[in-house]
Design a protein around this nucleic acid. Structure first.
Lengths: 221, 221, 221, 221
DNA sequence: TATGAATGAGGATTCATTCAT
DNA sequence: TATGAATGAATCCTCATTCAT
């Protein structure tokens, strides 16, 4: 409101300027996409939640799909970074997988928006409409965590901790089964088709997958 | 106009009259919903594919959502019936689960439309828009196969074939993980976010789940 | 308002039914396109002038451009028919050209809308945006009068009434010069860039063209 | 800010400062207006082609229309100057008209942008939107060449070289017919409604007009 | 019952113009 | 003076639903 002194200006950038606007749009978009899904999200509402004019959205993102993917990319980048940090190379592959499973649960429970948004893409809700360029971008973002899983599995195989399998295929099995369990965690109970404790479901999924992966004879608790 | 006596209903020719029209609508709707998803399905196209006037749709179904659920119900009824017929009580629980897994794969591969349509609901694509009555209907339809799984698991536990678990929770684990693998089977490769052989993925999922469930010591091939 | 007797219904079609709606849209569109030009025409206004919902326009015409061309086609068909009727084969080619010139003036003065609309296309105002199919349609419509001119000129050449020329090229010369003079007639004086009596301009154009075409020695008034 | 003394203006470097910026805007605007027409021209693109900020446009021109007219004015001033230089008072009026016709062809072929832009105004594409002040400006610019034509014609009449006519009206006839032929020259063939050799059309137009103007008996080649 | 024309709210996107820096 | 981010009115088009016939 009041005129700032020149020096004060360098403090402002956090709440104004191009990147701040972009961040506000992403935040608002994430919230609305999460609540309403891609098809039912109204960009007018995104704009007004971001306290910006509608046109401003288009100065930062070329289209609704582009905005969606940008939200997804932001979430994916975060996720991949944190997941990487979670992996402890000093423990067994099975324990690493278990700790990834715990991280997975914690992360998505704390950021359900990203999961739902990612999930929509993963479930081809609107994949058909996505221009190839954006599809490629989404792929790149989400391939990283899977490659990390693949590496852990390959390591476990080398050390004889795991039953024989194709690491890439098994990474996909874990990823998809894990997602299906997380989906229960982040979906409000009244919106779920089948009623079942999401916590128990998640634990059981993790347990079955680890048992199913482990090489006999067992040395686990 | 007047309520018909039950016997009178069976007299109505199967290829004309109210029920035949309904069937044509359901068929057309199933095809288009499958191809385009709920949001992008245009009822004009459904009507013209059914070779019916658009108004006719509304004489048989109250709304687009109602039509969607009716398609889903038809698919679910079919599925539950066939799945029931597949279960052979003379074999072990693990083998029964494996044979259900095979059936699952075969059924959805032959009827991908139903899977996609079911999947959309399952993934809360538009659950928010579904009136509670329709949601309840969907629930009832899809609970049957899960209850069947639950019974097989409970039986396996009784006979000591399986590791200790909550049958209902484990039925949900299998159901969700299985769905996540089927999703890969019925999604065209170019539309999948992550590239992985769907057949290998399905087999690996089935294998891991069964290993994970089986009680040690193992007696399986 | 009051219920009509069944017999009376057959009288109604002129003001209701699909073709009547189409006609109302064409009329409204012609008026607004005439007044505002293609780019500045608002289809909402067309709809409300036609006393129809906006969506109705799209049940009859696929797009704004399609509607524009339909208006043009209606005008062009009328024009070609009447022009054909105007040609009297018993008189000399020069006199036939003169009478076509008179017809031209009369017709466009009575239907300035069509001229303006045609003119916009002719002056490539939005030709670039026109899908090839529509461009071809426009071409076909407007080629007819030119072919008629070409025939009259060729006939005059055969009879030695006209100076040597390429009939198709000369038809184009007359058509374009004629149009440029008609443009003055149908443009309100205040909107014209250069102030000049439109009537005198038209007469002088006709006179110069005919003199310029006639073979010497002259036998004209 | 303050009014500069006339001498001071010539001191401003030609490649920087206010007038150079203005020139760059005009050049960019001319190119884009030419390619896209008034309605479809995007000022963002003009600014970026001029390698200037968008706001800068508004420091030099009050509005899009104002910019359009400025482009037009620049072209018109050029044209009038060169046309004036082309007229050779030592030859006959008919020959002077013919040489103007040649100049006309050459000039517009070399500067199609100006012609298209001028043409758009001439064809009232957006005359309705033009504030009266700008319309007056356009009029003044384009009246000069017509007055020059008028003088040549009046001279020809005085010397008995031309058939009797109103010089101002006839100047308008030549101007409009000439424009209609130039239009063919500067319009890419695929964009023309009617297909006809533009060169032949131009020559034929010139020929017919001169024959039509010349007083009999003829003494022309 | 079947029809299909009509509806109009709704939504994505564009762009000339403004204004704080 | 130059900038370019922000604006928001404007506009084309879609489509689920209604209703007169």
């Amino acid at each position: 409101m009041a005129t700032l002194k020149p020096e004060a200006r360098t403090v402002v950038p956090l709440t104004s300027g191009r990147s701040a606007t972009r961040a506000r749009i992403l935040k608002a978009a994430r919230e609305i996409f999460f609540r309403d899904g891609f098809a039912d999200t109204n960009l007018d509402e995104v704009a007004s939640r971001a306290e910006l004019g509608k046109g401003t959205l288009y100065r930062h993102f070329e289209s609704k799909a582009e905005l969606y993917v940008a939200v997804l990319a932001a979430g994916g980048a975060c996720f991949a970074d944190e997941m990487q940090g979670e992996v402890d190379d000093t423990i067994s592959a099975l324990d690493r997988l278990r700790s990834i499973g715990r991280f997975y649960r914690r992360y998505w429970t704390e950021h359900p928006e990203y999961f739902i948004i990612f999930s929509a893409v993963n479930n081809q809700e609107f994949i058909g409409q996505l221009p190839p360029r954006l599809l490629a971008e989404v792929r790149e973002i989400w391939e990283q965590p899977l490659r990390l899983l693949e590496r852990v599995i390959a390591d476990g195989l080398r050390k004889g901790e795991l039953r024989d399998c194709d690491p890439w295929v098994m990474a996909n099995v874990i990823w998809r089964s894990g997602n299906s369990a997380v989906a229960a965690l982040v979906t409000p109970r009244r919106a779920r088709v089948i009623d079942c404790s999401a916590e128990a479901l998640y634990e059981a999924t993790l347990d079955v997958l680890l048992w199913g992966l482990a090489a006999p004879p067992r040395a686990r608790s």
